[in-house]
């Protein structure tokens, strides 16, 4: 049963990611409608359709992962790391916000599922506590969850052998994720921003992919690149400077605080084997 469940977890994550890709990237493939004026057509339904889609998808994933990863240990560690991520938002040193690097490290050490949950829930709690629940929240949750998830897929054992190189690799990774997810998070509302006419920054349905990409790149560069660079730079520095001690701490904890315990042997001489994840 447990093999089936493990396999299903992978399938659920993959399927949900597919939904995420479809939902995030709609500005790139929605076609122009012949004749009709777009604005009164159903093309305008797409953004709302995708908000609903992301919400459903998040629900499915959180429910699914909760049902299988719902041991007290998992829930407690997740809850407290989430609280730390939210609390780090209050630490304002050079405008750095700590919401992003913890899911990266969490996913990297505790695995992709944990990373996804940590990323998604951190944003949710942060929004619930500090204000910021809105239609944008599901997209942010999904994107940050992905960051944690992808970090969990990095070859941890091989990177660990790099020694001091490990935090450097993670720092570059964090920088790239910071930029990519900045770009992805802006994508969903891009079509809302300007009129679908004229300007080189505007979204228009039905353009060629390359053209759309070019336009989006221009839009992104103008509107949020500086801010995202700043944030990605923060990630980079935090992971580079603190990656080693923080990883060491989390790994030691991970070893000590095994996630599953399975009984082995008979009733009177029991051995309990620890299975990490």
């Amino acid at each position: 049963m447990s093999t089936i469940n493990r396999w299903l977890t992978g399938a659920a994550i993959a399927a949900a990611s597919l939904v995420g890709i479809v939902a995030f990237s709609y500005p790139f493939y929605i076609p122009r409608q012949a004749g009709a004026l777009e604005i009164t057509s159903h093309a305008q339904d797409a953004p709302f359709l995708f908000i609903a889609l992301i919400v459903l998808c998040l629900g499915a994933l959180l429910g699914d992962l909760g049902a299988t990863q719902g041991s007290a240990k998992h829930v407690a560690v997740l809850g407290i790391l989430t609280a730390i991520a939210a609390a780090l938002r209050t630490v304002r040193v050079v405008g750095f916000s700590g919401i992003f690097f913890l899911p990266i490290l969490g996913g990297y050490v505790f695995g992709p599922t944990f990373g996804f949950l940590l990323g998604a829930l951190s944003l949710m709690v942060s929004a619930l506590m500090g204000g910021g629940v809105g239609p944008w929240l599901p997209f942010q949750m999904f994107a940050t969850g992905w960051a944690g998830l992808l970090s969990g897929l990095l070859p941890g054992a091989r990177l660990q052998r790099l020694g001091r190189g490990e935090p450097a690799v993670l720092a570059v990774w964090g920088f790239a994720l910071g930029l990519i997810f900045g770009a992805i998070m802006n994508l969903w509302f891009w079509p809302f921003v300007f009129a679908p006419q004229q300007s080189a920054l505007n979204w228009q349905p039905g353009l060629a992919l390359a053209d759309t990409l070019g336009r989006y790149a221009a839009f992104y560069a103008v509107t949020s690149l500086p801010h995202d660079l700043w944030r990605a730079g923060g990630n980079f520095l935090v992971l580079l400077l603190f990656g080693r001690p923080l990883l060491r701490l989390m790994r030691r904890f991970h070893q000590r605080f095994h996630f599953e315990v399975e009984p082995v042997g008979s009733a009177h001489t029991l051995g309990f084997v620890n299975r990490s994840q």
Binding site: G66, A67, T82, L117, M129
Partner: peptide
């Protein structure tokens, strides 16, 4: 069906 996720969030909110 979201019970576990709900408890996680409740913990986080209580610990912030």
């Amino acid at each position: 069906f979201l019970h576990q996720a709900g408890v996680t969030v409740a913990i986080a909110i209580a610990f912030v």
